[in-house]
């Protein structure tokens, strides 16, 4: 990102402030939701959706993922795939186990 002009940086700064406001707002939202009675599964799904939105905002804007290079994208794709395997395969093994 060494090629940024001062104008662009100033523009970035505006984005950062907006993202900050969004993050703070979503934090309040997710706490608020947790006090509603949405049932077990509904609550989990909603909270995870909100957290994912917040995470995406941080990654895309603060970590500048939106204008990153392909090498980084490939690395992260591999990581996400490995992460999903790590989360879901042991879980499915356990659920399959419980059925017999």
């Amino acid at each position: 990102m060494s090629e940024l002009t001062p104008e662009e940086v100033k523009h970035h700064i505006k984005t950062y402030v907006l993202v900050f406001i969004a993050l703070a707002f979503l934090t309040i939202v997710t706490v608020g939701i947790s006090y509603l009675d949405l049932g077990h599964v509904g609550g989990i799904i909603l909270a995870l959706i909100v957290a994912s939105i917040k995470g995406t905002l941080v990654a895309c804007y603060f970590m500048h993922l939106l204008d990153e290079k392909v090498t980084i994208y490939w690395t992260l794709i591999a990581t996400v795939v490995a992460f999903l395997i790590l989360i879901f395969v042991p879980l499915s093994a356990m659920l399959d186990h419980a059925r017999i």
Binding site: A93, D96, I100
Partner: peptide, 11 residues
């Protein structure tokens, strides 16, 4: 490595 742990058949 875990076949004999009573793993389910689909997994």
């Amino acid at each position: 490595h875990m076949y004999i742990t009573g793993m389910g058949t689909s997994i």
